[in-house]
Simulated scan of single mutants.
Amino acid sequence: MSIKQPVSQNHTFEDEQPKNKLDAAIISAGNWLSLLFIFTVLISFYEVVMRYVFNSPTIWVHETASFIGGSLFVIGGLYAFAANKHVRVVLIYDVVSERTRHYLNLVHHIIGIIFSALMAYGAYTLAENAWFSPSGELRLNTSGSAWNPPFPALLKAIIFVAFCILTIQFLLHLIAEIKVLRKHSHV
């Protein structure tokens, strides 16, 4: 018995193809980075065995697994946008004409550029504070645990870079949408 997923009448195979080289690179990197979820499961299993079988818990597994998972979820946002798998209000999107969809995409991309650029700025200030002391000297914020890794500073840098990339993604998608609209207006 198979369960069929509802498919939009306007859904095409092209919707799942990367729209540019950046999207293709993000999808490729994301596919490889997703293997880190397996690593996270393995080290978590190791922790359970060490704690409950050998009564020798680790000090590094929980923070490492949290850091990897958090980093992958941040990168997952880039992946979802690159693969056109992001959340969309199809109630409206699927009932309008193709031309109207292109205009809705324009609005989406412009708002996305503004949002992601502002978030990149906010992430920059957080990352800067996590990486540098008030005097400007390099010092990474750490977790404050017994192990004390610099994961908080590293995650803030990943968030900053991700929002910078997302801003570029939105810009590239906006340019592509404008080209499509221009092509349709000359036909």
Score class of each variant (00 low, 15 high):
Val48Ile: 14
Thr64Pro: 01
Asn105Pro: 02
Ser56Asn: 15
Leu33Asp: 00
Val96Glu: 03
Ile26Glu: 06
Gly77Asp: 02
Tyr93Cys: 03
Glu63Cys: 05
Lys179Gly: 14
Ala117Leu: 12
Leu166Asn: 04
His186Lys: 09
Lys4Gly: 00
Ser145Lys: 04
His86Cys: 12
Met50Gly: 11
Phe115Arg: 11
Ile26Gly: 04
Ile26Thr: 03
His184Pro: 00
Lys19Val: 11
Ile168Thr: 13
Pro134Thr: 01
Ala83Trp: 00
Val90Met: 14
Ser97Tyr: 03
Gly76Pro: 03
Val180Ser: 10
Ser116Cys: 09
Ala29Tyr: 12
Met1Leu: 10
Glu63Ser: 04
Ile59Leu: 09
Arg101Ala: 01
Ser133His: 06
Ala82Glu: 04
Leu126Gly: 06
Pro152Ala: 03
Thr167Ala: 05
Leu36Pro: 06
Phe170Ile: 05
Thr167Pro: 03
Leu91Ala: 14
Asn84Thr: 04
Phe73Gln: 07
Ile27Gln: 06
Ser34Arg: 10
Thr40Val: 13
Ile3Pro: 00
Asn55Glu: 15
Leu42Ser: 06
Leu22Thr: 13
Phe170Glu: 14
His173Asp: 15
Lys183Glu: 15
Leu118Asp: 02
Arg139Asn: 06
His62Gln: 15
Glu137Val: 15
Ile113Gly: 06
Trp32Ile: 14
Phe163Gln: 12
Phe170Gly: 04
Tyr52Cys: 10
Thr58Gln: 08
Thr58His: 09
Pro134Asp: 01
His184Cys: 08
Phe132Glu: 00
Phe115Leu: 11
Leu172Pro: 01
Ile175Lys: 12
Ala24Asp: 12
Met50Gln: 14
Tyr79Arg: 05
Ser133Leu: 15
Asn148Pro: 11
His108Trp: 12
Leu118Glu: 04
Asp15Phe: 05
Val187Gly: 10
Tyr79Thr: 02
Phe81Arg: 11
Ile158Glu: 03
Glu177Gln: 10
Thr40Lys: 05
Ser44Val: 07
Ala127Tyr: 06
Ala83Glu: 03
Ala65Cys: 06
Leu91Ser: 14
Val41Ile: 15
Ile114Tyr: 13
Pro134Ala: 01
Leu33Ser: 04
Cys164Ala: 10
Val107Trp: 10
